[in-house]
Simulated scan of single mutants.
Amino acid sequence: MNIAPNRVEIHNEWDIVRARQSGRERAKELGFGHVDQARIATAISELARNIYLYAKHGEIIISVIDGEKRGISIIAEDNGPGIRDLRKAMEDGYTTSGGLGAGLPGVKRLMDDFDIVSEEGQGTKITAKKYLR
């Protein structure tokens, strides 16, 4: 299965909705159940919202993992200010936007694999993956 990645540029709140819907549709096509579709959509929503709030623009890339394990890969990438204190940002309840603070730790819990690379002044790249059971 060689399916081109879905790329959604994030510039405004409607783009967050488009990214979320795109991820849910791809998860459904791959055979994820309703609960995992919701988890994937929620993770994408959080990642896209972070791009919009902190970097102003960036991209969500949704691709199929078709190897030993099958699943979905979500990459959230921006050239924003980066995350000053990555350890603190990964603590439950930590927020700089007045939100609920579920953000990145929540995404990590919703997905099977989670990786973040962020450099202050250079931007952030987050890769999150969910595998079919």
Rank of each mutant, 00 (worst) to 15 (best):
I74R: 00
K69V: 11
A76H: 01
V64T: 11
P81N: 03
L86E: 01
I72R: 01
G82N: 06
R109T: 11
G98R: 06
K108I: 11
A89E: 11
I74Y: 00
Y94N: 09
M111A: 03
K88T: 15
D66L: 04
D78G: 11
K108D: 11
P81V: 03
N79P: 15
G98Y: 06
G82K: 04
D66S: 08
R84G: 10
I75K: 08
G99Y: 03
I74Q: 05
G103Y: 01
D112Y: 05
I74H: 01
L100Y: 08
N79Q: 14
R109G: 13
R87Y: 00
Y94E: 09
T96R: 12
L86K: 03
G99R: 10
G67C: 05
G103N: 05
T96D: 12
A76G: 13
R70M: 10
D112R: 09
G93K: 07
V107M: 04
S73F: 02
A89P: 12
E68V: 13
R109D: 15
I83H: 04
S97Y: 08
T95D: 11
P81Y: 00
T95C: 12
S97W: 10
E91F: 06
A89C: 11
D66W: 02
D78I: 09
D112M: 12
P105R: 00
I83Q: 03
K69M: 08
G67L: 03
L86C: 04
G98L: 12
R84A: 07
R84I: 02
A89Q: 10
M111H: 02
G80L: 09
D92S: 11
S97F: 08
E68N: 13
T96N: 11
V64M: 14
A89F: 02
D66R: 04
I65Q: 03
I74L: 11
G67W: 00
E77R: 14
V107T: 06
G106Y: 02
M90H: 01
L86M: 05
M90W: 00
E77D: 13
